[in-house]
Design a protein around this nucleic acid. Structure first.
Lengths: 166, 166
DNA sequence: CGTGAAACATTAGCGGC
DNA sequence: GCCGCTAATGTTTCACG
């Protein structure tokens, strides 16, 4: 399930698609010195094996009025979980929190972390008023959340979806 | 330069393209109840106005052997800058650091932050050995860097490029 | 905004290396 | 196995109503 043996051409195709996901198969085929059919077969194989997870359009947050980016460190309650005592479905605090996070659209990334905080959230919102409402009404309102610590992005220095292909 | 007046159909187009950037114009046109030509005209307008920044393929880090994700907080030297004293080109520590960050492929995101650390880096690497080399040979080797604090991702709970469309 | 037609791209089947 | 050809099908794109 790790690597499905990628050769130099596969890597080149990935590098191209990481930069521009809408190039035509013909264009890609030219750039990797292959004819369209084997090139397409390789792309399909990369898609089916899951190396290519999907294709997306990237939007500009500023132009959509989403001017504020915050990183929020979250600490969770460690004991107990589902409301009913001795529930036959023992959802932990972690489970509950994960589900909530996945449902909140302003959370664009979330990792469980090492260190003294449990989760790191990347939160994309319109402005401070919206952020404040998010923290008060969603995050702190969540029964599993003990504590949050926020830092705001002053400036986005770099942001890429392109992975470093070894 | 903020919003270029997006109506409900534009938003629907953006929502669709954020999820699947390779749908054919015909398919999109159907889903928004338009014929292909006006739909394509809208998409072109969104591209030219920069609301759509581009199209990319998203790759699976695990399947490419990039199993380790770290968040690195960085603090910079605040005084001085270019090596030569009284340089006619007074690049600050911040400028130098930004340029370095943009050139390092393992850094997939970087923000200037509020709080006691200056920058937050998202670093995607193969394993701990690679990460260690990155910190020693690149980050700490950089003349502007005073101090770094790392946390590692134990589990990726959520990760989306889709912005919450108001 | 929609229609239609020309130009272009995708994709399956087959033969060759 | 992997490449490249061909031919049918589907898609994009643009002038015009």
């Amino acid at each position: 399930m790790a690597d499905t043996e990628l050769d130099a051409i596969d890597r080149k195709i990935l590098a191209i698609l990481q930069e521009n996901g809408r190039l035509s198969n013909q264009e890609i085929a030219e750039r990797v010195n292959l004819s369209p059919s084997p090139c397409l077969r390789r792309i399909r194989r990369l898609e089916e094996s899951g190396v290519i997870r999907g294709y997306v359009a990237l939007l500009d947050p500023q132009k959509l009025g989403l001017g504020l980016l915050a990183y929020v460190n979250v600490r969770l309650e460690k004991r107990g979980g589902t409301a009913g005592t001795r529930s036959p479905n023992p959802a932990t605090h972690a489970d509950l929190f994960r589900e909530a996070v996945r449902a909140w659209p302003e959370v664009v990334a979330c990792d469980a972390m090492t260190g003294d905080m449990d989760y790191l959230l990347r939160v994309q919102v319109e402005d401070m008023a919206h952020f404040s409402r998010f923290v008060q009404d969603q995050l702190l309102h969540h029964p599993s959340v003990i504590d949050v610590k926020t830092s705001f992005s002053l400036e986005r220095i770099k942001e890429t979806t392109a992975l470093p292909l070894l």
